[in-house]
């Protein structure tokens, strides 16, 4: 599995370049043209990334989540849900690095093969940083009316979290 995912990028590049070569297009000039467009894209998404990192950092570093969730501990123990997973589930749509850091903590404290370790792995694998992605993608084409995109994305995340919990329970 690992070897396959390591081979994908080199093979992909090889295939694309070879295909362009065979179709007799100016591959080098075309590459430069695309790279220039890429540079413009980065230029456009830079403010959106900066704005989101700024807001998310302030929010996460206030430690409001840890304090909020610690009050729920007794309740979650009663329904047999490990409390450590909560901040991770909440942070997952906001920041990939932050949720990865929490998962790292969970692995260090409980081990990757514990119930909460497996649940954290599944969570990290099955959803994405919805809020960050929306800010980035819509920001790149200057769209500010996002309609029902965010709530639908977060709904899917919520279902993913619930499904992870049930599936990990059933399979292991």
């Amino acid at each position: 599995m690992n070897l396959i995912s390591k081979m994908i990028i080199p093979l992909f590049v090889l295939f694309v370049v070879f295909y362009g070569y065979k179709k007799k297009i100016m591959i080098y000039d075309t590459f430069l043209e695309g790279a220039k467009e890429g540079l413009i894209t980065v230029f456009h998404i830079f403010p959106a990334i900066l704005a989101m990192v700024f807001a998310i950092n302030i929010f996460l570093n206030s430690h409001i989540l840890e304090i909020l969730f610690s009050t729920f501990t007794p309740f979650f123990e009663k329904i047999n849900l490990p409390i450590q997973i909560l901040p991770m589930a909440f942070v997952r749509p906001i920041s990939g690095t932050a949720s990865l850091a929490i998962m790292n903590d969970i692995f260090a404290n409980f081990g990757p093969d514990s119930f909460v370790g497996r649940l954290a792995s599944t969570l990290q694998g099955c959803t994405d940083t919805t809020i960050y992605v929306l800010a980035l993608y819509f920001g790149s084409i200057k769209i500010n009316k996002t309609r029902y995109a965010l709530s639908t994305g977060l709904f899917a995340d919520l279902i993913g979290i619930i499904a992870s919990f049930i599936i990990v329970h059933l399979i292991f």
């Binding site: 694309v16 295909y19 362009g20 065979k22 179709k23 695309g34 467009e37 890429g38 540079l39 998404i45």
Partner: peptide, 24 residues
């Protein structure tokens, strides 16, 4: 974060332009 993304986006935009122009 942007500096991490910058080279990847520029490089892949170039590669994908080839894929686009060649009809792939």
């Amino acid at each position: 974060m942007v500096l991490d993304l910058l080279p990847i986006i520029v490089l892949w935009s170039g590669i994908m332009k080839i894929a686009e122009k060649s009809g792939l």
